[in-house]
Nucleic acid binder design. Structure first.
Lengths: 345, 345
DNA sequence: CGATTGGTCTACAACGTTGTAGAGCAACGT
DNA sequence: ACGTTGCTCTACAACGTTGTAGACCAATCG
């Protein structure tokens, strides 16, 4: 066990509280005293015990980040952004993986927080509107992307509908008319899921272009969630069923990368035979063959907004609670080879 | 602030210590008493304050994981494995990103640990043998992969040399003779780095096959660390310099994926013109076009071994410290399309 | 039957920190 | 000269938990 404030105080010849004051930048400490304390701290290599501080002050300086899985690139990159944003503000991040399972997601919000985390950033996948009240309890909570609840919680999400619409418009602009959608979720009638909103954007874009929706072009991904295998399977099916299509809107980049691979296996050229656009702008999409056009939902900004919002909520006195808010950064379409735009350089 | 043990004790009609005993499975508690306490805990939705427990017992139940970046797929997948292994053992994981920078790596080992983490899993990149003593201090520490120190620390690493040798042998077996290596690190004469060991494996395989090494085939990746851009740049250079080669051994999968992309751009077919093998077996390698043969260094096992080893070290009394050990799980070569093996299915 | 054992439970102190209250002192204004 | 102010610092208590010591009682043993 290392040195404590008592040790530092003894060496510096001051009271233990003065050491505390120096550490916490309490203004009324004479420069000389401060120097002596700092010298003692360095001499002893003193570092504060966060458990004790947490016990006394109620803050641990640690927040939680609950995501489905770090093996999904989007969430790995989101975690990267969140951790860097948090670190810049002096917070540590405990990462929890829910696997996208409802049970684990509920656990993450309740038990996971055994009076330890100052707050939680949570990216739910399986929870729906009906679980809104499960989120009402407990401390500071900010929900990230994916779904939208009407619950009493802050959201940092994305322009799911309008960006999906823009993605399809991009395909229309380059002359495609038979646009398949991969990754639809037709079981849940959950109006607020990313899948539903992006589907709605797809439909709206088609509608505005005067194109009728063909159910054969809207593909789900069965068991497999939004991963490469699901995208590949959906693309194979499209081809093997003989469905005519000249473009694919994949609801996530990993789906899109699976689609790219399957189209290659089927002997179709991208973008000549089929154009492909994804969603998320994960790093990988810039390096696939061909590189993939995608929707950048503003991940970095989502992370920063979310951390800042959480910090505000943590600092808030329970008295002057502001009403929950929703934030949506701007999205952009990143044009790459899979829709006929050569990479820069 | 939620209910405390005092509240539970009052409701259950016992002393606070009895509540503690129930929670910690102290054996000598009558079933009836135990039931009343458990009922009270559930009624109040009591959850222990980990700060207080940490203060009193010296354990927080949280370990640290310091990796270069979660944007590198290998480390995202490693983090996934570590977090799942830790969760199964009741530990939380705080993830820190060093960016591979020496300064931040040193910080991660020292300051990062302000008497809070029970232990640290650390995957160093920039630290070398000369920093071994910097790692001597502080609490339980287990080093992961990448580099090997002779310091007083446990290692869970991989068969860098022999697996690299096996990778090159695989290329030799399919008839390749002009085998390029991408990702060499020729600046540092650090004999213990992954790059050096894998280079040595490459050389040994060539030597055993009676092939002389051609310096033009051994490529560094300049500024960029082992990422796709570096692999792509190296492959472009190889082609444009007119170097003759029929295979590439990329020292990481991301490098290899960059190589795949660049070869495609240069109009070379994989594996017909050039066979490619990577290293790491990240998920992505199974889904590239073509899918990429690679070395699986046993990532999942590395994570489990490391967490278990750290837990042992945490439990250890400082008296009976066992000497540091090194663990290396078995590696395997995963054969895929980039060396002429069709994917299963 | 008295002494011993062992199971069950409690009171108390301590972990290292920070908030509160206030002491001591110099500088200032009247 | 004296009260007031404001800066600097200290003593003390408290955060919620667990280890230690021991009280109490029933069962067991000689």
């Amino acid at each position: 066990m290392g040195p404590t404030m008592h040790d530092v105080a003894r060496v510096a010849g001051v009271s233990i509280k003065t050491v505390s004051n120096v550490i916490n930048d309490y203004p009324h400490v004479r420069p000389g005293t401060r120097d002596r304390v700092i010298a003692a701290i360095e001499q002893l290599d003193y570092r504060p015990n966060l458990s004790a501080r947490g016990l006394r002050s109620g803050r641990t300086g640690v927040i939680g980040l609950a995501v489905p899985s770090l093996r999904e690139n989007y969430f790995a990159e989101l975690a990267d952004s969140v951790i860097r944003a948090a670190e810049a503000r002096g917070l540590g991040v405990i990462v929890e993986q829910t696997g996208g399972q409802r049970e684990k997601e509920l656990l993450a919000v309740s038990t996971s927080r055994p009076r330890f985390l100052d707050g939680l950033l949570f990216s739910p996948v399986s929870l729906g509107q009906e679980d809104a009240e499960a989120l009402a309890i407990d401390g500071p909570l900010v929900l990230l992307g994916e779904r939208i609840f009407d619950g009493p919680t802050d959201h940092v999400t994305m322009h799911n509908l309008s960006s999906a619409q823009a993605a399809v418009q991009h395909l229309l602009e380059i002359g495609r008319r038979r646009i398949a959608l991969v990754g639809a979720d037709l079981n849940g009638i959950d109006e607020t899921s990313s899948a539903s909103l992006r589907l709605k954007g797809y439909l709206r874009a088609l509608d505005e272009a005067g194109i009728e929706m063909d159910p054969a072009l809207v593909r789900t991904t069965e068991m497999s969630r939004w991963n490469r295998a699901g995208g590949a399977a959906a693309a194979h099916l499209l081809v093997r069923e003989g469905v005519e299509f000249d473009a694919v809107f994949a609801l996530s980049d990993t789906l899109g990368l699976g689609v790219l691979r399957a189209l290659g296996e089927e002997g179709l050229r991208v973008p000549d035979d089929v154009a492909v656009i994804g969603f998320d702008n994960i790093d990988e999409s810039g390096y696939s063959v061909p590189s993939m056009t995608t929707v950048d939902p503003g991940r970095e900004e989502i992370a920063v907004l979310a951390v800042d919002r959480l910090i505000e909520r943590i600092a808030e006195k329970s008295a002057d609670r502001r009403p929950p808010e929703t934030f949506k950064p701007e999205f952009t379409i990143v044009r790459r080879e899979s829709t006929g735009f050569p990479d820069p350089q």
